[in-house]
Amino acid sequence: MSAKSFELLLEMAYDAPTPAVFEDGAAAVYIELERALRDSKFARGTDKGNLSYSFERLRLGVAIAFVKAFVRLAHNEKSKEVLEVLQDAIQAKNTREIDKIIQKRIASFDHLYHEIFVNPQREEILHLFELTLDAGTKEELDDLIMTGLELLAEVDWDYTHSDDDDSDIEPLDEDFLKNL
């Protein structure tokens, strides 16, 4: 995996060439994790805080990409709160501060599940977001980045659900309904 893939995931999610998610850029966040992983292999007994923090920043970035894509598809104002929580957490200076920000506003995450089944792509994006939260290694995040790139390339960003879409569906038989 590469820093470029991570940048591309954020660009696709935001539909912008350089989304302002990280002050130092998405590539720098990815490279910092690689550096922290390399340093942790060769340094004995050193502080693992930098490794954890670097991993959390990358994981937050991947999560932000999936939530931003979900928000673009959902058009649900309440879902934007989750994006705001994650964007606030990305500004934290350590993992403890990240946890504090998210825990304080954890109820916002319930809004993601409103009307997800209207669009199967929303459901898939939300599933990738959930897998991101469970990811525990750089390799898992790399897989999620690649899967996300494939999915976002196929998303119908112009899809909107309306009652007109249901006009092709035949109405249920009244006799059938009465027998229920």
Rank of each mutant, 00 (worst) to 15 (best):
Q121F: 13
E139D: 11
K93F: 03
V71C: 14
P19T: 06
D142F: 08
D168R: 09
A153S: 15
Q103L: 15
P17S: 11
A92N: 01
F42M: 01
R44F: 10
E124H: 14
A153P: 00
E7L: 02
A13M: 07
D175Y: 03
R57H: 03
E124N: 09
L177N: 04
N94A: 06
D110S: 13
F70M: 05
L86C: 03
V67Q: 02
A107T: 12
A3N: 10
D99I: 13
L60A: 09
R38P: 00
A36E: 07
K4Y: 14
E170T: 06
F42C: 00
K68F: 00
N76S: 04
T147P: 00
I90W: 00
A107S: 13
F66V: 07
A36M: 10
R122T: 02
Y53A: 09
V82A: 09
D173N: 15
R122E: 15
A65I: 12
F66Y: 14
E124K: 15
L10N: 02
I31H: 08
E23G: 14
L152C: 02
Y113T: 12
K78Y: 13
E97T: 07
L144Y: 11
I106N: 06
F66R: 00
F117L: 14
L83H: 01
E150Y: 11
D163A: 11
D143E: 11
R59I: 04
F55A: 09
D15A: 10
G136L: 07
F66N: 00
